[in-house]
Design a protein around this nucleic acid. Structure first.
Lengths: 149, 149
DNA sequence: ACAAAATAAATTGCATACAATTTAATTGTA
DNA sequence: TACAATTAAATTGTATGCAATTTATTTTGT
């Protein structure tokens, strides 16, 4: 019951969040290594599989990443042959990223990844849904705060 | 209802976890900038405030970090004057990290940080507790898996 | 129309993360 | 007790993250 209790690791919510996120991406690694993708590259491909085509800005909005992270990452995905980038015709400031045929084929190979990963997370369907809701509630609030600027 | 649904970003549990952890540490930044600490340095100080003295290995076990991350980080905290490191007398392989007086004083100054941060996370007491439980459940399961090796 | 403000990427710099390797020291064991 | 196996940090190398700056382009306000 000290005034310092609030500074104890075990009383933080941020710490298990931080540790858990790291643990998850760490456990993704062996699964993704087979495809020569990192976790960030993997979720970038998820955006591309859904959108087929998107600007760096749009990808960044989906993933909460900025061009400082995305530019080199997109270059790597391009060199692997999964996407292509070219200047936008409409707006020469923008870059349009497009998925390639190889990128589309990769989707078929990776369909089994989420399930393999799901096995590692020891939550019931109900718990997973709860966690999902709570996390998006926090994210939503941060989005509000950030847009208020 | 496609077989690719499992690869949609919105159907992932890992993604909000990843995004949320980043958002939290990002929102910690302005609070921690005042003290010239990064988030990782901050949680390392939390360990030191509780233990007063610990090996690099012990700190790593608390924070799920290895020496590759901790060695340079501990050097920085030492150069800031908050901790000291010296070889262990018992086992010359080990390094013992000890908190300094300046490090102890820092604790007083930072007592208000968790509360300031709590205001950013839009959860009720009950929701926060639920989230806490779920996150530690996942972490615990990963710990089990990892120790089985 | 045109200078100023805003925007999109890219670049730069710093601080993690973490796998893999190296170095030094300690333990276990034949 | 030699000596192989193990262990603790440090080192090396790659890949993020993100703030801040730069560059090129587009919008805006007059």
């Amino acid at each position: 019951m000290s005034k310092y209790d609030c500074l104890k690791l075990e009383n933080q919510l941020c710490f298990p969040l931080y540790a858990c996120a790291k643990a998850v991406t760490r456990h993704y690694k062996p699964l993704l290594d087979e495809f020569d993708l990192t976790y960030t590259q993997y979720i970038t491909m998820m955006v591309m599989w859904e959108k087929k085509s998107a600007s760096v800005k749009e990808i960044g909005e989906c993933l909460y990443l900025d061009s400082g992270t995305l530019t080199p990452l997109i270059n790597k995905l391009e060199s692997k042959g999964y996407i292509e980038k070219h200047r936008s015709d409409d707006d020469a400031r923008g870059v349009v990223v497009t998925i390639t045929e190889a990128g589309k084929k990769l989707r078929d190979k990776m369909v089994k990844v989420p399930n393999a990963m799901g096995g590692c997370v020891a939550l019931s369907e109900k718990e997973a849904k709860e966690l999902y809701t709570l996390l998006y509630k926090i994210l939503g609030h941060f989005d509000e705060i950030d847009s208020e600027v």
